[in-house]
């Protein structure tokens, strides 16, 4: 990895990197461009510049119903996964219990498992207990599948925290409960917000698990998917562009928050269990 070697190979590497980026992002660029294309989805090159599809989109009530459903599902999924992920992360960080190493891996499992497996098993569970499939089951499914994301994010925040602060709080006469709310929780605030943003985004474009658990009302990705079966419309391109914008900005905020805490916390203990693959997986 000498500097000389690096610079001599730079032109080749740069070209290669550009190709990879093109491969990754060209389809997305096409999607965005065609959402403004005057002659609809067909034909190359795109011709004419129009906002018609966006206009059409904003008049489409059933699509907006799906958007609203997705937002509700995502918001509740955030609440569920944070609510369950926080105690899990606390247990991983500070409790000693038999099988902790196993628990730590099992918490991550839903992240690695194909959505089909998670979806199918949740479906069997809900059917087994006699629950009717609806947005409620979808929400429960998202909440469950994304606990691992919440746990890893919060665990990373806990690892960065100076434990002496909590001891100082106890030392100054605050009991464990007060210490949690006045010291631990404020220290975790950034991690919690970051986790919420990430989970919200992930839930918003989730298909695999949703597909198994959906009832009568569609979430946005499923609405799009069902419309696609009737053929691609530029309207779909338009809504996808909007989702893309929304997701990118959420992820950017998440990333900013995260790097900020990394610089603020001086503890070098970077969480080993952090799923780095997540950072680039969903965009």
């Amino acid at each position: 990895m000498s500097g000389a070697l690096q610079s001599s190979r730079a032109p080749l590497l740069t070209t290669y990197a550009l190709l990879v980026y093109a491969f990754l992002y060209f389809p997305i660029v096409v999607l965005v461009v065609y959402s403004f294309n005057g002659s609809g989805v067909g034909g190359f090159p795109p011709s004419g510049w129009t906002f018609d599809w966006y206009r059409q989109l904003f008049a489409d009530a059933s699509l907006w119903d799906a958007v609203l459903n997705s937002f509700i599902v995502a918001a509740v999924a955030v609440a569920i996964s944070l609510g369950l992920g926080l105690p899990a992360a606390l247990a991983l960080d500070r409790a000693q219990f038999p099988g902790k190493a196993l628990f730590r891996r099992l918490v991550l499992l839903p992240l690695i498992l194909p959505g089909i497996i998670t979806g199918l098993s949740l479906l069997m569970l809900f059917v087994g207990v006699g629950m009717k499939l609806s947005l409620v089951t979808v929400t429960l499914g998202h909440g469950t599948a994304l606990i691992s994301v919440a746990t890893t994010e919060i665990f990373a925040g806990l690892q960065k925290m100076d434990r002496a602060q909590e001891e100082a709080s106890l030392d100054l006469g605050a009991n464990h409960w007060k210490t949690f709310w006045r010291i631990t929780f404020p220290n975790l605030k950034v991690s919690l917000i970051a986790a919420a943003l990430l989970i919200f985004t992930l839930s918003l474009d989730e298909i695999a698990v949703t597909f198994f658990l959906i009832g009568r009302d569609n979430t946005l990705p499923l609405e799009i998917w069902s419309r696609l079966r009737r053929g691609i419309t530029p309207e779909i391109n338009a809504i996808s562009t909007l989702i893309l914008l929304f997701s990118i900005s959420t992820i950017l905020i998440w990333y900013r928050l995260r790097t900020r805490t990394q610089h603020a916390g001086e503890s070098p203990a970077e969480a080993a269990m952090l799923p780095s693959s997540l950072e680039g997986e969903h965009s």
Binding site: A164, E167, N175
Partner: peptide, 20 residues
């Protein structure tokens, strides 16, 4: 007696000032 009820206070090596 639990730590929070002892009439003892500590100055920590890292100071442990509450940043927020």
């Amino acid at each position: 007696i639990p730590a929070h009820r002892r009439e003892v206070n500590t100055v920590f090596q890292s100071y442990a000032i509450f940043p927020h």
